[in-house]
Design a protein around this nucleic acid. Structure first.
Length: 345
DNA sequence: CGGATTGAGCCGCATGAAAG
DNA sequence: CTTTCATGCGGCTCAATCCG
């Protein structure tokens, strides 16, 4: 076996910016030498490497090759990768940048911009904007200031979770499952959600006006989002994919939802159950089954009080008579996967 | 004999009451 | 307001039984 030819160090190596991601830095280097990134990697002895894989986990061999070429320590290079992101959160890392800072110049991409919960530019301390437009500006600034508190709390948890350092219960995936559960039957845009249309326009847009829209718990936990999100873009994907593939506005709302649910899981989930219809409640209960038992009990206890207070105030009189037969709850019950796994005795 | 149906028992769960 | 306790419901699995 012939030894690989020793690669000399590059004459010029661009300085990396703080928090710059490997693909961005390698791209700048390649452009500096007038090459494509692929060609540049080939020059570094990494002919068959995919930049996205390198950036995910810079393997030992690859790291050593690249380090020798650019005269840096492997650890320094690895700091530009997403090695600290746990595998379960890999889907959160975008290939390019998700949102843009209106003040930052293009050119370099920071690691943070790959993650769906970084809504603020560290350098300029302002909110980021969607590439397609300034989605967050649908929300009034005064509201945004308040929402930021929740969003930041959510973002902190999300960031910790991605690094495998979040022990909180319900877990992040559980919270996102809950937020993305449809709490009501899908329904066409309500009057409030419809633009004002002439009769003729209504006829022309019949498809839009009658199209069922999924109604997720997120809308109850973050009603501010419900109010401003375009009706067709309201539903988010299920579970973790909601964040991984969501728009800026959707992800912001999800972070707010995570923040709120983390702070008050009982209150918010009980509120969602209050707002749910029959089939939605079934789905919610199924999702809640993954939550800790003690928490679930508190939720149902709260729900009971809410329902009691509600029926007491609105229509009154239908008070629970003592000795009345317990309300049948067969509607709440549904398939359980019974597991007869042998127990250790 | 093999697939479908029914019965029995089991177990997790929601719930109300009561205690903390 | 939360946790603990006791309770009964109803879906689930297994196995006995039935039927072609």
């Amino acid at each position: 076996m012939r030894a690989a030819p020793a690669l000399r160090m590059l004459p010029v190596v661009l300085k990396r910016e703080p928090d710059e991601r490997l693909s961005s830095w390698l791209g700048r280097l390649a452009r500096f030498y007038g090459m494509s990134t692929e060609a540049f990697l080939e020059c570094c002895g990494l002919s068959h490497s995919d930049i996205n894989d390198l950036e995910w986990r810079l393997g030992g061999g690859e790291g050593a090759l690249l380090a020798a070429r650019v005269g840096m320590a492997v650890e320094e290079l690895r700091a530009m990768t997403f090695a600290e992101i746990a595998p379960h959160a890999r889907l959160m890392v975008a290939r390019g940048r998700r949102y843009v800072c209106p003040l930052c110049r293009g050119g370099t991409q920071h690691k943070a911009t790959a993650l769906p919960w970084s809504f603020w530019c560290r350098e300029h301390a302002i909110r980021l904007a969607a590439r397609s437009g300034r989605e967050l500006e649908r929300l009034p600034e005064t509201q945004l200031v308040m929402l930021d508190l929740n969003a930041r709390a959510g973002a902190v948890r999300l960031a910790n979770w991605a690094r495998g350092r979040d022990e909180g219960l319900p877990s992040i995936p559980q919270l996102l499952d809950f937020l993305t559960t449809r709490h009501r039957r899908s329904s066409p845009p309500s009057l409030a959600e419809q633009p004002r249309l002439s009769l003729e326009a209504r006829r022309a847009n019949h498809d839009f006006l009658t199209r069922p829209i999924a109604r997720q718990a997120l809308l109850v936990v973050v009603p501010e989002y419900d109010r401003v999100a375009p009706v067709l873009a309201k539903p988010v994907r299920a579970g973790l994919f909601s964040l991984a593939q969501g728009s800026l506005l959707q992800n912001y709302a999800l972070a707010v939802g995570v923040g709120r649910l983390s702070a008050d899981p009982v209150g918010y989930s009980a509120a969602v159950l209050m707002a749910s219809d029959e089939e939605g409640e079934e789905r919610l209960r199924e999702t809640l089954r993954a939550w800790p038992l003690a928490l679930r009990r508190r939720i149902y206890a709260r729900l009971g009080r809410l329902r009691g207070a509600h029926s007491g105030s609105s229509l009154g009189v239908e008070r629970n008579r003592p000795g009345r037969k317990r309300r049948q709850s067969q509607k709440f019950r549904f398939s359980r996967s019974h597991n007869y796994a042998p127990r250790i005795s």
